[in-house]
Design a protein around this nucleic acid. Structure first.
Lengths: 218, 218
DNA sequence: ACCCCTTTGTCAGACAGCTGACAGTAATCT
DNA sequence: AGATTACTGTCAGCTGTCTGACAAAGGGGT
């Protein structure tokens, strides 16, 4: 259960000297936290790169929503999909019309390769979302989420791995495709079973990662 | 509920004169029906275009499986994903190593554009799969499936639209992410409720498509 | 220190969909 | 034709997850 769509960081990529002329084609836009910035049917066809802040990419129907990814600095995305995009924090985006990107691609084959690589990664990630929705129950998805966080954003210490989630239970539930209540109940059970320890609000310690790894399968 | 990944038909595209030299780079391979031809972890990194027959692209875990798409002539796919590919009928594939495609892309920017378009379509389709898994119940997914089939492969007559499914109940269940039994029960209910009529094994008539369209929402 | 608002934990009840079982029907093989 | 295998329909549990409700705890602002 990953929250990033792609492991390619475009800020690093674009920082290189040879991409300087491409970089200037972007327009910076600032947004305040908790604002919906793009919805499906958005008239303008744009691509954007996150420069600062965290965004949430999600599908929504009526009162339910499901997070496809949490976008962070270096992530790229486009506005013309069926997903909504909202800011979780104050954020700055680098924006460019898709048409401009396309004309740029015609003269820069290396760019096409990068785009294809990114699309491939996003596709792989969405297959893995489908996989988890179809084959895994909530407990497994939650364990997968903690395992991913521990591995990618955890701080390893003598006591085990410390994981800090900047998410409310509701937000976490939307990522794994469940509800607040169910997630809360399962986390309580995990604390009781000793696979997780709560250090502080949003901060958990995993002392034995193999225990957690096993936990998903009962 | 679509079963095709992409609406771009590469056989038509490649039939054009200017692509002749590219076309000859492919190797034809024949497969008999009901054989698993690629699995995740497949050592060779290939792309293939379906020339003849229908294939099923699916995710599998232990005894469960979920169909991502039914590939038909003109569809393209790659072997290095987490999905399995099996033939539903005797089939012929046009195969090429991904590396060869990539070197070809360097000199043919138009090809990159096509690849990007295809990846975009597959991505869109997988978002729509996620959408249906998260937000829709089995009844809705099944109605969506019939609606899609009626629209794209149905034969319209005076009595309504005739839909022929070349699928067993189990296969249909794997497409919408359910079980044989549930699908069978719901189809029975649809027949009783008159939104569907059974003409023959695998052949259904939809006399009133609006009735069916409504049916998903109770 | 107080109030307000957001977040969390927990529980009982409901229900959609899965499982397993069995009988009936259709297709395929020899 | 008969036998074997594959597919379909149906029903009675069972279970995982959602819903709604309420109380408790935390955080921020004044």
């Amino acid at each position: 259960m990953k929250t990033k769509l792609s492991s390619i960081n475009l800020l690093t990529e674009l920082g290189k000297e040879e991409n300087r002329d491409f970089l200037v084609e972007f327009t910076d836009i600032n947004y305040t936290k908790n604002s919906l910035i793009y919805s499906p049917g958005h008239e303008r066809d744009l691509i954007f790169i996150v420069k600062k802040g965290r965004l949430r990419l999600y599908l929504a129907v009526e009162d339910k929503d499901f997070s496809l990814a949490i976008l962070e600095p270096g992530d790229i995305y486009a506005t013309h999909t069926r997903a909504h995009v909202e800011t979780l924090e104050d954020a700055t985006l680098m924006v460019m019309p898709t048409a401009k990107l396309q004309s740029y691609m015609a003269t820069h084959p290396a760019l096409s390769r990068t785009i294809i690589r990114i699309l491939g990664e996003i596709l792989k990630q969405s297959f893995s979302i489908i996989d988890s929705l179809v084959f895994k129950d909530i407990k497994q998805r939650l364990t997968d989420f903690f395992l991913y966080e521990a591995e990618h954003n955890g701080r390893k210490g003598v006591m085990g791995t410390t994981v800090k989630l900047d998410l409310t239970t509701t937000q976490l539930a939307a990522i794994i495709g469940s509800t607040r209540q169910t997630v809360s109940t399962i986390i309580s059970a995990m604390l009781k079973d000793g696979v997780l320890e709560k250090k502080d609000r949003n901060i958990y310690i995993i002392s034995n990662i193999d225990l957690l790894r096993n936990y998903g399968h009962t």
